[in-house]
Design a protein around this nucleic acid. Structure first.
Length: 121
RNA sequence: CCAGACGGCCAGGUGGCCGCUCUUCGCCGGUCCUCGGACCGGCGCGGGGAGGAAAGUCCGGGCUCCAAGGAGAUGCGGUGCCGGGUAACACCCGGCGGGGGCGACCCCAGGGACAGUGCCACAGAAAGCAAACCGCCGAGGUCCCGCAAGGGACCGGCAAGGGUGAAAGGGUGCGGUAAGAGCGCACCGCAUGGCCGGCAACGGUCAUGGCAAGGCAAACCCCACCGGGAGCAAGACCAUGUAGGGGCGACAGAUCGCAGCGGAAACGUUGCGGUCGGGCGGAUCUCCACGCCGUCGUCCGGGUAGGUCGCGCGAGGCGUCCGGCAACGGGCGUCCCAGAGGAAUGGCCAUCGCCGCCUUCGGGCGGCACAGAACCCGGCUUAUCGGCCGUCUGGCCUU
């Protein structure tokens, strides 16, 4: 099974951030596009897409890379299984992303989905 | 054994589950097709996949474009003991000189101050030409006192001692002197000349001089040598889109030939062609060579950042032999060893190792540096837990 499709353009990240749906957890921040966003831009592939952000607040380049990799690994398991289709997601790293135990990081992501009412059991 | 100096190396190990990226080969599907294949996508087996600094972007190159090549001058920037290494360097190696350490060793922006200009703050009497604040002297001259010995004042002599300073016109010692002074002498330093050693920087030695010549060139400067600019968002191709622009201003010369027209002719005018010019093009100028052509200046308008290549066989790694004190060079053998593009090189678990804390001595908890390739090499600089190996120095103990 191929990797989840990724957001790649700065414009796409800004669209997700501008839709205003956000959930904060100790290990991460989750943003998602709204449900009433009209028809999907690519109707042939209406699945979910995901992007990752690690700002300089997380640390130097090594720390940012490691945070992004942990979030990517967590998203592959949680979002693939439980995230609602037809939305774009952006996962933002925080200072706690590096020190949070991995099991709790998975829980943070699942809890954030539930709070945005995008959890798919 | 302790303390230390120098050089080299490693950068936590192993196993399991799940992934990413590039790729040899095989299979499947699609497109093109000169039916041999090429390209695209998917799957499978196998292989590769961050660093010693990948960092800072401080030097030196390769490569690419700028049409861009030569000579000279000017300007700007850089380098600066000598010899060697190298593609090259501001790097490296070996020397020299100076300084530090008992020593192994370490450090040094190390050309020129009689080519010129300039500066030397504060303090101090005086800062580059000599000068005399506190002082020292009373030999010489004049005067005074005294019978005399002698004493005193002034003219004056001195720069040893004190004091200021980063620096005060060699240092130490002896002689000398009224006190002093290279005034004389010895040693050291310095300068000049000769000889010897060395490729050289430089060193040694002898003679002479008798101290004059201060420092700053990371002040301008002088001398020698080196250097065109911009950078992989370089640049090339494909696709798509837009445009092969528009406005305003200035200038479009001279001469010759031919032809047409006007003219009696001189000549005027139009066209074509030639020559000389003109303008633009490197940091500037001159000359040569070359390219472009209505030129120059200014303002306005419009569009794009998708894909492929560049993009890794290289001043390459490892081993070995030879030359060299060494940096390094040469021969032979062997290996192919990251190539992303919101950006792969990982996520999680277990266990071992090391460190710290706690402990009921079973163990438990936490941590494991600095740090992430982006066109590629050679250096420099900076950051860095811990450990290993080798050579050497100074001590202590034992024999």
């Amino acid at each position: 099974m191929a990797q989840l499709p990724r957001l790649k353009r700065r414009r796409e990240f800004l669209t997700v951030a501008g839709s205003g749906r956000k959930a904060v957890a100790p290990g991460l921040i989750l943003q998602a596009t709204g449900p009433s966003r009209g028809p999907a831009p690519d109707a042939a592939a209406p699945g979910l897409r995901v992007g990752f952000t690690a700002s300089r607040k997380v640390g130097n380049a090594v720390a940012r890379n490691r945070a992004r990799r942990r979030l990517r690994a967590a998203s592959e398991t949680v979002l693939r299984a439980h995230a609602a289709n037809g939305h774009d997601y952006v996962v933002i790293a925080r200072a706690g992303t590096l020190t949070r135990p991995y099991a709790e990081l998975l829980g943070d992501l699942a809890g954030a989905l539930k709070r945005l009412s995008l959890y798919r059991p």
